[in-house]
Design a binder for these strands. Structure first.
Lengths: 212, 212
DNA sequence: CCTCAGATTCTACACAGCGCCGATTTTTTT
DNA sequence: AAAAAAATCGGCGCTGTGTAGAATCTGAGG
């Protein structure tokens, strides 16, 4: 009932209105950055994109669909950026970890509000939750390989590679979410702490101690 | 404007209606367990507590206030249960970790829906977010002491005790949230994985390898 | 029993914001 | 230029919240 879209039109005809679709997503991200989520009403989005409220429903079936599309676009970019290099079997484990953590942090820096909103509404908007879970699952898969190459026993047991990677990936997500939610975000600190924990788990001492 | 309560009555008069207040919280938790959050309308809560919608606003200023009260009650119990023992300086670090993780898991087992809802709405309802953050902060403080006793350098640097404890506490929260959100929750597995990571961080090998 | 104050309850109203419909205008095709 | 398709708009109806004011219940005095 709630997820039905009886009036969805527009499938893939490469018409002019594609610009509007982009404008809607751009406005949504801008509003997210400026004011946060609560004031972000459909009215406001439409206005920012230069159309009326009713017209917006020509492009997206609901407000949640707009948000979902924006999140999907961002998470796609994240996955592309962060998992390719660590997935390469010749990449040394510690470099793989550093790279994945760094790139993730970068996405939080550049698209903090979108990432934050995605987390905030992952439970409320199931589609967003699914996207997020899928992304973390991709990371988990890649990082499981990294852990194995670092000498952690392969397998599905709760103290073996897959489970550790899973929990550490979620930890990393949380750490950046936390850091990005602070009044004065310090992503660099989060990077250092996360990397340190990953390293300690694979039994590698980082040696770098950067005091505040 | 949104947090104003012009019509709040009832402060602390120990009248009969206290039962109603309890009934409201009890019903709220029941509804949360049975149907989840979205169908949990003020109407439904009031009905379950045996009063009308309007009457509920005599006891709580808003729907969010009801939820917040329920979360506060649950988190109070959690903090009491889980942090006293680890905070004792004579408790060995690994026992402190095991205890804290175990008790936290227990709270998720017994009040999963409330805990889950708290996380889901931490961003949407600031009061709940504050409660949650405060609880994690308490855990962080206690566990920082534990890490120090386990030999981790004391200090505020990103690779020292406080930062590691902070990130690991949030990791633990996420892990249980994840586990509790599965169709078939397996908190035991989450306990094992979390504990393993805490142990690896303090440089202690657990030795127990329990395969699936 | 009657009365009054406070506690508790209810019904009715106003409001915000979403999603949808039908009609109209603009753009593209032939 | 006519027809078809794409895009736009204003307005209606719905759900669910929070509030107001009137009505009822309870219990202590008289």
């Amino acid at each position: 009932m709630a997820t039905e879209q009886t009036t969805r039109r527009r499938r893939d005809t490469p018409r002019k209105g594609d610009l509007r679709e982009q404008a809607i997503l751009r406005t949504t991200e801008e509003l997210l950055e400026r004011d946060g989520v609560e004031p972000m009403t459909v009215e406001a989005i439409a206005k920012g994109a230069g159309i009326s409220r009713g017209s917006l429903y020509f492009y997206f079936g609901s407000k949640q669909e707009v948000l979902t599309a924006l999140v999907a676009r961002t998470l796609d970019a994240l996955t592309r950026d962060a998992t390719v290099f660590p997935d390469d079997e010749t990449t040394p484990p510690h470099q793989a970890i550093e790279h994945a953590v760094d790139r993730t942090a970068d996405m939080w820096r550049r698209h903090g509000p979108v990432m934050r909103t995605a987390v905030d509404y992952a439970a409320v908007i199931p589609e967003i939750g699914d996207l997020w879970t899928a992304t973390v699952a991709t990371f988990t898969k890649v990082m499981t390989g990294v852990l194995v190459r670092a000498g952690i026993p392969e397998g599905d047991g709760p103290t073996e590679a897959a489970a550790l990677a899973h929990t550490l990936c979620w930890m990393t997500e949380r750490a950046f979410y936390q850091a990005a939610s602070q009044p004065v975000p310090d992503l660099t600190r989060a990077i250092t702490t996360c990397t340190e924990i990953w390293f300690r788990v694979i039994g590698h001492r980082s040696g770098t101690s950067s005091g505040g």
